[in-house]
Simulated assay, not measured.
Amino acid sequence: MSRILIADDHPMVRDALRSAVVYSCQASEILEADCLDAAIRLLEDKGDLDLVLLDLTMPGVSGLSGLLTLRGRFPATPVVVVSAHDDRRLVREAIECGASGFIPKSTPRDAIAGALRQVLQGEIYLPPQLAGAVEEESPEDEETADIVRRLATLTAQQMRVLEMLGTGKLNKEIAFELRITETTVKAHVSAILQKLKVYSRTQAVVIANRVMEKNRLVR
């Protein structure tokens, strides 16, 4: 019996995904969240779940940041991206960030059900029309993929610090919001610079935005 979390801010989409979950497997528990913070709270409360279905355009998510946050904080929980967009580069970068699959929202219920069964069996799912997307890569895509791989090495807390750096917050403001010391913030910033292979906070924000801006989707 599986425990599955559906994270999407649109009630009709959650209903459709719940129907696909019920149709595909005997889930013992189906949870729902309408923003990233709510999803994180449920994962913290319930422990490792069997699967998370994650939308990329709900509150608290900027491009692939939500996926990176969940993979960093809950590495044992598979995450499948469910998106209204099926851009091949986005699919490739989602897999690079650790997604266990990518399901376009236009996918029929039967196909979604089959995809969920495949992921719950430990496989990675890509729709047939996008199966070759992971192998395709232009020079620009290769550079972006390298940034994505570096971002994927950040811990969940480091991702949160990086996102706050992007909003212009000072160390003391970040420390207050995250309820940690300024010394800890400085340690996180140093680790971020090292992992992203940059030399300043500004450079870190610029290269992170390069990925996030490309993947900031409009519903």
Score class of each variant (00 low, 15 high):
residue 218 V to E: 04
residue 88 R to V: 11
residue 99 A to C: 11
residue 159 M to F: 04
residue 117 R to P: 06
residue 212 M to C: 04
residue 178 L to Y: 05
residue 83 S to F: 00
residue 104 P to D: 10
residue 135 E to I: 01
residue 166 G to C: 06
residue 109 R to V: 13
residue 157 Q to N: 09
residue 135 E to A: 14
residue 166 G to W: 01
residue 96 E to S: 06
residue 197 K to R: 14
residue 137 E to M: 14
residue 91 V to E: 04
residue 90 L to H: 11
residue 181 T to L: 07
residue 202 T to R: 15
residue 214 K to H: 07
residue 129 Q to I: 06
residue 210 R to H: 12
residue 154 L to S: 10
residue 115 A to W: 15
residue 86 D to R: 10
residue 127 P to D: 03
residue 97 C to M: 07
residue 168 G to F: 15
residue 102 F to R: 02
residue 134 V to I: 06
residue 215 N to M: 10
residue 105 K to R: 13
residue 115 A to R: 10
residue 190 S to D: 09
residue 155 T to R: 13
residue 111 A to P: 03
residue 145 A to S: 14
residue 172 K to A: 04
residue 74 F to M: 00
residue 86 D to N: 11
residue 139 P to K: 15
residue 213 E to W: 03
residue 92 R to D: 12
residue 167 T to Q: 15
residue 217 L to W: 10
residue 105 K to M: 02
residue 91 V to L: 13
residue 159 M to Y: 02
residue 198 V to S: 09
residue 162 L to A: 03
residue 189 V to Y: 12
residue 207 I to L: 10
residue 80 V to Y: 03
residue 93 E to G: 00
residue 97 C to N: 00
residue 121 Q to T: 07
residue 95 I to E: 15
residue 166 G to Q: 07
residue 172 K to L: 08
residue 169 K to N: 03
residue 172 K to F: 09
residue 185 V to N: 08
residue 118 Q to V: 10
residue 137 E to R: 15
residue 80 V to P: 01
residue 132 G to V: 06
residue 157 Q to F: 03
residue 141 D to N: 12
residue 81 V to Y: 03
residue 81 V to D: 01
residue 84 A to L: 12
residue 158 Q to P: 03
residue 189 V to A: 08
residue 136 E to N: 11
residue 170 L to T: 04
residue 219 R to C: 01
residue 180 I to V: 13
residue 211 V to G: 04
residue 131 A to R: 11
residue 161 V to F: 08
residue 127 P to W: 00
residue 215 N to P: 03
residue 185 V to W: 12
residue 186 K to A: 13
residue 204 A to T: 00
residue 120 L to G: 05
residue 114 G to R: 13
residue 199 Y to I: 00
residue 151 L to I: 03
residue 124 I to E: 00
residue 145 A to P: 02
residue 200 S to E: 09
residue 116 L to Y: 03
residue 141 D to P: 00
residue 197 K to S: 08
residue 180 I to E: 10
residue 100 S to T: 00
residue 87 D to E: 14
residue 129 Q to W: 04
residue 108 P to D: 14
residue 192 I to C: 07
residue 108 P to V: 14
